[in-house]
Simulated assay, not measured.
Amino acid sequence: MVKPTDRVVATENEPLKKLAEVRDLNFYYSGKHALKNINLPVYEKKVTALIGPSGCGKTTLLRCFNRMHDLYPGNRYEGEIWLGDDPPRNLLQMDPIEVRMQIGMVFQKPNPFPKSIYENVAYGLRVRGINNRAILDEVVERSLRNAALWDEVKDRLEEPGTSLSGGQQQRLCIARALATDPALILFDEPTSALDPIATVSIENLIVELKDQVTILIVTHNMQQAIRISQFTAFMYLGEIVEYNETMSIFTKPVEQKTADYVSGRFG
C-alpha cells in the first residue's frame, strides 16, 4: 500500500501547507477494528476527497476529526490527528466541544435546527457566548453570502430554516458551519439527498469555498471527486489503499485495487 508520506506531492506549482495530519490512526467500536493504521495529510485551502465502497470506513474516518465517536460509549482511538502549526494540537487530546468549534460538519441529509434562518447561522456564536446583535448580524450576513444564500433569504431571516428547499437547507447548514470561522469543514456526502440542480449548486459552492477554508469530503460519486477535489484517498476495508492528487488517482493509479475501483470493476 502507498502511504501519503511516501510521495512528495506538488500541485499547480504552489507550495503546499498541511492544515491537518492523521498519523497511525486506529479506531475501534463494539470490539471491531474499523480503521487500521491511517496516515493522511490534509492540505490547507484544498479539497480532499475520501472515496471507496460502502462500509470501507470513509465516514468513520471523517467523524474522527470532530470527535463525533465520543458520543457513543466503548469507542476507542489510537494514534494522532494533528491540526494547525502554531502550535500544532492533537485533536484526540482536546476538549471535544472546542474541537467542534474549529471543525464544522455538513451531513448527508440537510439538518437545519428548528429555529429561524437567522438563529440557525447564529447558533454557534451564541454557544460561544457572543450575543452582541451587531456582531451577530454581520456574521450571519457574511456566512449566508459565503454560502450563496443571502440574496434568497435576506428578507426571510425570521422564517424557519425548515421552510427552505432541500438545496437551500443544505446551503444554510454550510452557512451555519462557516459562522464559527472553522479551520476545516467536513462534508459527508452532502449532495446524495439532493436533486441534480441543487447538487451542481453545492459543488460550485465547495469549489469557491476552498479559497477560504480547508475541506475534507466523503463522496460515493467518483465524478464529483474529480470535479471538486485536488487530492483523493481511496479507502478499502478500513485502510487507505492509495492517496495522491485526484487526477493521478483516476488516470494513473499505482495500486491495482485502486485501478479496479475507479474503473468500476467493483464497488
Rank of each mutant, 00 (worst) to 15 (best):
A148Q: 08
A148D: 15
L149T: 03
L149H: 01
W150C: 11
W150Y: 13
W150E: 02
W150S: 09
D151G: 13
D151K: 14
V153Y: 06
K154C: 14
K154E: 05
K154S: 15
K154P: 00
D155V: 02
D155T: 15
R156Q: 11
R156G: 03
R156V: 01
R156D: 07
R156E: 13
E158A: 12
E158R: 13
E159F: 09
E159D: 14
E159Y: 13
G161K: 02
G161P: 02
S163E: 07
S163D: 09
S163Y: 13
G167I: 08
G167A: 05
G167E: 07
Q169H: 06
Q169C: 10
Q170W: 11
R171G: 02
L172A: 03
L172K: 08
C173P: 06
C173T: 07
A175C: 12
A175T: 04
R176G: 06
R176E: 09
R176Y: 14
A177F: 08
L178W: 00
A179D: 01
A179N: 00
A179V: 11
T180A: 14
D181I: 02
P182Q: 06
A183V: 00
A183K: 15
L184C: 03
L184F: 07
I185R: 03
I185P: 01
L186M: 06
L186P: 01
F187S: 04
F187M: 12
P190F: 07
P190R: 10
T191Q: 12
T191W: 10
S192N: 05
A193Y: 12
A193D: 09
L194P: 09
P196Q: 11
P196H: 10
